[in-house]
Design a protein around this nucleic acid. Sequence first.
DNA 1: GTCATCAATGACCTCAAGTCACTGGAGAAT
DNA 2: ATTCTCCAGTGACTTGAGGTCATTGATGAC
Lengths: 249, 249
Amino acid sequence: MTGNGANLIEPLRFGRQPSSRPRSAAKRSRIIEIAMHHFAENGYHAARVGDMAAALGIAKGSIFQHFGSKDGLFFEVYKRAVRSFPKYLDAPAEVRAIGFFHVLQYWLVRTEHLLREDWIPYRISLLGNYGTDLGLKREINRFLMAEDPYGTVAFVRFGLGRGELRDDMDVEMIVSILDWTMERFQDALLTAELDPGLFRRQGELPEKKEARIQQFLSILQRAIGAAEAVALRPELKKVSGANATKVRA
Amino acid sequence: MTGNGANLIEPLRFGRQPSSRPRSAAKRSRIIEIAMHHFAENGYHAARVGDMAAALGIAKGSIFQHFGSKDGLFFEVYKRAVRSFPKYLDAPAEVRAIGFFHVLQYWLVRTEHLLREDWIPYRISLLGNYGTDLGLKREINRFLMAEDPYGTVAFVRFGLGRGELRDDMDVEMIVSILDWTMERFQDALLTAELDPGLFRRQGELPEKKEARIQQFLSILQRAIGAAEAVALRPELKKVSGANATKVRA
DNA sequence: GTCATCAATGACCTCAAGTCACTGGAGAAT
DNA sequence: ATTCTCCAGTGACTTGAGGTCATTGATGAC
């Protein structure tokens, strides 16, 4: 993941990037690592570059030499965080074999557990989505469009190929709907415990989570599922019942 | 209010908080007005309180006396902006009479025109949703939950009462889905021209907007519409065709 | 005419982002 | 081995915006 030796990743420049020469990749990586912790724990604004430098035992100026600005540093942190997440089609082959919506369910149930193991990258993506300046958000969206880090496009094509998704509208529209609703639903689900009060109308009782996931999937299936498939299998719950046990990573 | 002849004892007895004394409402309002322009034009971070004070011809300190902090000022600006938007059920009676999804369509088509007349409040809501610190966003969400400024809950009950929405799941879930997707879809639609590149996968050609709105409504109708209603009226386009003329406010 | 009140003021403070002239150590050249 | 070259690293410094507070002066009560 970080073993990108020769090929220097061209960082989008914010403000000024003094030199585009390849600096020590290992040091860059260490800075990003610490910065991720600081941003995740304090938020974008309250995280101080000086603190990060102190924690690393280096001069603050060095960080600016590497990343140009606080924005630039955060952008690198954000990219690493988002790249560390799994893509939809990274689900196990057995799950993929069952179908598109089962893959969704797999990740919705699983995400919560992944989060508990490591909430830091998730927190970073939250900051990138909702907690920075619009100028930075624009860069972030360019990145998301270019990289499609969750593999949503491929996943939708997978569903279309299996005949599980409706083919009467633009692929882009389905991808957008999936992106939007999955992002918001996961945010609501996860921040209910990680950051209560951050999102509207999140579930209160933890035991309702399973039910909420089923409702959400039912809505999604009717929204973007193929009409015949919906008619044939209006209840996803039966399928999910076989898999609703605890997940242990 | 003060015209009480004999009994004019006004000792100002309620809690005397340092910064929340009742100051001139007119002045507060003027400050909010100017601040809204500055935030809208420059973004949250780049907007400077000093500039606003200069534009108003008052001292910077006065603004802080009134609102406590830049965050506090923005919050007031945000509330005013959001409250200036229409609620779903503010649609004309004829439109409401046709049905739930027609009201949605009405607003989607209309919003673009409303925006062109006055993009400033919209820009403020964008900043509040995506472009400030998470701490402020928490306040904003509390406000949105308490006030429901778009009247989404009442609107969903309206749709349920007419039997146009599915009644097999929590009202809260339907409200959430509607809030999320409408917000994102409108953002994508509007920022396509207001702020290209801010959102993922927004429509490129303006002439595709009408088609996108229809696709989006079709998805929503299948997602949260009552099963029978969807079966009876799978095509919303016919209904919309009668109304697809230019809207003039 | 005197006094109390308090919004308004603007000089001042704090603190974090960002800059830059200098340094020291690791290789290259001799 | 000695000198040279290069440049990552440094930290004192500048900038500039948010935020504070003792003072002021307009206003109305007595």
